[in-house]
């Protein structure tokens, strides 16, 4: 069933379209930056954006910062929202279940496909933005004196190996965050027969969480908001790495994954399939 889900994923034009759009945004930003040579002022704009003009090796990190707040969760919500509700809407869900595929297997396969989609999307964003960054802004040899190296947020120079490791850490962390969010969307997907409805409900959660995060009065519930630690991937680029929020974020996302995957399972296993 997992193999089937992956074959479906690979054969869907929509999947590749959304990944293509995710890659296109950073590429567009890179082209505009290189043409205008106008970096955002320090402290404004996306993370790393002011630094990439001097060093293309940092562009993957800047690209992640660009897609993380809205576009990546949007793609994840659409994909995960479609997971069960989409199959219900086309009617293929009932045929899978009478094939028979057990409901748990369907759900696990959907979760695995979701994880693969997230990894695939982020990897594509990183790879394309690395190529674009190196082509447009150079390898950082002039800026840092070493090809493929970059200056960390704390000013310490990171060698190519170190930079790659930290980028991998950041990617892994973002994957976990997206998986946590995706499991919320998956839960809504088991509630509804409308893929769009499920995706919108997940986005509503995202927006509500983001709004609450900016509110000082909501301080007491902030540690539990799904988006609270999303931006902590940037802590991989501090020196020494600030693990505190990364750890909290991983624990929180693990809880969200367990909670909402469990809720999806509880709901889906007992559900009457009337679509």
């Amino acid at each position: 069933m997992i193999a089937v889900e992956l074959r479906k994923l690979a054969s869907r034009p929509r999947v590749w379209l959304s990944i293509g759009l995710l890659c296109a945004l950073p590429a567009l930003v890179a082209v505009l930056l290189s043409v205008s040579n106008l970096a955002p002022p320090p402290g404004q704009g996306g993370a790393f954006l002011s630094a990439v003009l001097r060093n293309g090796a940092l562009f993957p990190a800047a690209a992640l910062a660009l897609v993380l707040p809205v576009f990546l969760p949007l793609a994840v919500a659409v994909f995960a929202g479609d997971a069960v509700a989409g199959e219900a809407a086309t009617g293929t869900l009932r045929y899978l279940l009478v094939r028979p595929v057990s409901r748990s297997r369907v759900l696990v396969a959907k979760m695995v496909a979701l994880a693969v989609f997230i990894v695939l999307a982020i990897t594509m964003v990183v790879v394309t933005s690395l190529v674009v960054g190196l082509a447009l802004f150079g390898t950082g040899a002039e800026a840092v004196g070493q090809s493929g190296a970059a200056t960390s947020l704390s000013g310490v120079t990171l060698g190519p190996g170190e930079l790659a490791l930290r980028l991998l850490g950041a990617i892994g962390y973002i994957v976990v965050c997206m998986l946590g969010f995706g499991s919320i969307a998956l839960f809504f997907s088991t509630l509804s027969d409308s893929a769009i409805g499920a995706a919108l409900a997940a986005l509503a959660v995202l927006i509500a969480s983001s709004v609450l995060q900016t509110l000082q009065a909501a301080d007491s519930i902030k540690p539990y908001l799904p988006t609270n630690y999303w931006l902590s991937w940037i802590d991989f680029f501090r020196d020494p790495i600030l693990w505190r929020n990364i750890d909290s974020g991983l624990v929180l996302q693990a809880c969200y994954i367990a909670l909402f995957f469990g809720a999806s399972w509880a709901n889906f296993a007992a559900k009457d399939i009337t679509s």
Binding site: R94, L97, V98, P100, A270, D272, I273, T274
Partner: peptide, 9 residues
């Protein structure tokens, strides 16, 4: 029919 196939409980 759905009950026969286990789709509806």
């Amino acid at each position: 029919v759905r009950m026969l196939l286990g789709l509806v409980h």
